[in-house]
Design a binder for these strands. Sequence first.
DNA 1: GTGATGACGATAT
DNA 2: TATATCGCCATCA
Length: 134
Amino acid sequence: MSTSARDERDYFERIYTVADQVPRGQVATYGDLATIVGEGCDARIVGHALGALGARAKTVPWQRIISRTGGISTSGHGQRELLEAEGVAFDEKGHVRMAAHHWEGPSEEWARAHGFQPLPRRPGSAPDPQLRLF
DNA sequence: GTGATGACGATAT
DNA sequence: TATATCGCCATCA
């Protein structure tokens, strides 16, 4: 097999593409991005990709990518400020309210169009019923 | 090629 | 919920 998706070895580009799909006011975890990218991608790969953003940090919403615990290790980069500016609510402990801002993933149509995978549903992780207006 | 590192995840306690 | 331990994979020295 050649021209395999993995053969492209452009994990970073894919991760950037998926991260760019995260809507404003929402956040996604490294694991989610890795799942969407698939092809053996892992949460750490996403972390490395975001760490290698460099000049692309201005075009990729890296601030919307946080750890699964909702905490941010990038303290000092103003990530929290960026998220708050987008309307993301934080907990008293500095954790993002995942239940209210967790990204559901890209549309299946978009995912297929780009060769990605839709994000599987998380049992028990339904959006906050109180915030579930409309 | 090997070892160490890392913007992590999942599970167990 | 927080902490501890293991795993997982790409990149760097």
